[in-house]
């Protein structure tokens, strides 16, 4: 049965081996192996339908699972997870706070649930409201907040009990850049204290994670720091600058080694399969020869290229 909770940093805080989740005949998770240790920001990324939500819900102790090993914060996910839930904060995709209560009432309710002492609650709530810029709206009914404010509140609310593990499922989907930055700042303030697992489709958020878990078709396809993931990808990225880059996209796609072309502003992003690449000098010359191209540069891989390449290799597998 479940072991006693381990001290932070002493042992893997998440240790999953062959974790399987079935819905009827459908397998949402096909055998996930994952070890994560210590407080850090971990991004769970991958294509739609890869099983990200299912994995996050399983780790938060919300699902019945099968596994060889399924330990989270020293608790076995297959056993009694009530004690685990006290140490986990979870923010689901859909807004799940009480819409009729005001911002501060929602926080107070969470404080009471977790039996946080009044003085401690006041201090933490004040800090969270300040960081999220929600202080002026403390008395507004939660249902009347904008989408971005709701998500900031949801994250702040989950952080209030200072959980050892925080699980965020697409909590920034449809949220504007400033609100996202405030959420990122909230999480950064807990860096070194909380293990944060989040799924996101924003490239900048994925790039700023300490570690990424790339999930595809219910399995972990790759895991590592963003740099480690980039190193696994066999793609070269070029930019061909032109006054009207849309006009060169078709010609660039016709080159035999080119995998994908997409135009953006004054340039076309050109992805080249490393194994078919004739070498950077030749690619640059070929691209420069296209009508309208003025300047060509070889770029270090970015998160977009990395994830696209992983998606392609996942689709092939």
């Amino acid at each position: 049965m479940s072991a006693a909770p381990t001290l932070a940093g002493a042992a893997p805080e998440i240790d999953l081996a062959q974790l399987v989740k079935r819905y009827g005949r459908k397998h949402a998770l096909e055998g996930v192996d994952l070890q994560l240790t210590g407080a850090q920001l971990v991004g769970v990324v991958g294509p739609d339908g890869a099983g990200k939500t299912t994995l996050l819900r399983a780790i938060a102790g919300l699902l019945e699972v099968e596994a060889q090993r399924a330990n989270v914060l020293g608790f076995d996910l297959r056993g009694d997870v009530r004690a685990l839930k006290a140490q986990v904060g979870y923010v689901p995709q859909l807004f799940a706070l009480n819409r009729e209560l005001s911002v501060i009432e929602n926080l107070r309710f969470t404080g009471k649930l977790h039996r946080i002492a009044t003085a401690v609650f006041e201090r933490r709530a004040e800090e969270l409201l300040a960081r999220t810029a929600l202080a002026p709206f403390a008395d507004r009914p939660t249902g009347a907040l904008s989408g971005g404010m709701k998500q900031k509140l949801a994250v702040a609310n989950a952080l209030l009990p200072e959980p050892a593990l925080l699980v965020l499922d697409e909590c920034t989907a449809g949220v504007d850049v400033v609100a996202r930055a405030e959420i990122a700042a909230l999480l950064a303030a807990r860096r070194g204290e909380t293990l944060v697992l989040l799924s996101t489709s924003y490239l900048d958020e994925a790039a700023s994670c300490d570690r990424l878990v790339y999930l595809d078709a219910g399995r972990v396809l790759a895991t590592g720091t963003p740099a480690e993931l980039r190193a696994q990808v066999r793609v070269e990225l070029y930019r061909a600058w032109a006054a009207a880059p849309r006009a060169i996209a078709a010609a660039a796609r016709a080159l035999p080694y080119v995998v994908a072309v997409r135009t953006s502003g004054r340039y076309a992003r050109v992805e080249v399969a490393a194994e078919r690449s004739p070498g950077a000098a030749r690619v640059i010359a070929d691209l420069a020869a296209l009508a309208g191209v003025r300047v060509v540069e070889l770029r270090p891989l970015d998160m977009e290229t990395t994830l696209l390449a992983l998606a392609r290799s996942g689709a092939r597998a």
Partner: peptide
């Protein structure tokens, strides 16, 4: 209206290729 919200990067990529083709 937010056609790519909550969509993975590969789908967004294809989506924008389509949008640019439509504009062309």
């Amino acid at each position: 209206d937010e056609p790519t919200a909550g969509v993975d990067v590969a789908s967004r990529d294809l989506f924008w290729q389509i949008i640019q083709d439509e504009a062309d």
